[in-house]
């Protein structure tokens, strides 16, 4: 059950990303181009996604457990620290330069051509490199 839910989640997420326009890198860059020809459509994507999610959090709080009986995510960390901010800056820079964030990069892997595949490999390398660097430091 758990794995079927996970497959359905990924599928619905992937189709939503394609339909919403999030896999169109020019649309993403157009959204970030606040001082150029700003394209506000990503506001609708975010807004549309937050509505069901907001309700889901309220329902989850009431239920106290997931449908399959596993624990709900623990209360959010409240520490506003440096890694959070530096990480967000680096991510925002990369997001703007290519117009891809992790979800859409995966959703468009089958039709995004060479650039999409190269982005994916570089992103995974970045994740792996970061984990290795962390391991070495500690």
């Amino acid at each position: 059950m758990r794995n079927i839910i996970s497959l359905l989640t990924g599928s619905l997420f992937g189709l939503g990303l394609v339909i919403s326009g999030m896999t169109d890198t020019l649309k993403v860059q157009g959204f970030l181009d606040l001082f150029g020809g700003w394209d506000p459509s990503l506001v609708f994507v975010m807004g549309g996604a937050i509505i069901p999610m907001f309700i889901a959090w309220r329902v989850a709080e009431k239920r106290g457990a997931s449908i399959i009986g596993t624990a709900l995510p623990s209360a959010p960390n409240t520490k506003l620290d440096r890694p959070l901010i530096i990480g967000a800056i680096l991510f925002g820079m990369g997001w703007a330069l290519a117009g891809f964030c992790p979800g859409p990069a995966m959703a468009s892997l089958s039709f995004g051509g060479t650039s999409g595949i190269v982005f994916m490999i570089a992103m995974l390398a970045g994740m792996y490199g970061f984990a290795m660097f962390n391991k070495m430091r500690t």
């Binding site: 530096i86 990480g87 991510f91 970061f130």
Partner: peptide, 15 residues
């Protein structure tokens, strides 16, 4: 594309 991918990979894990 490579620079952007590395930034997204590192940034999302750090953040």
């Amino acid at each position: 594309v490579v620079v952007a991918g590395l930034l997204v990979g590192i940034g999302t894990r750090l953040g």
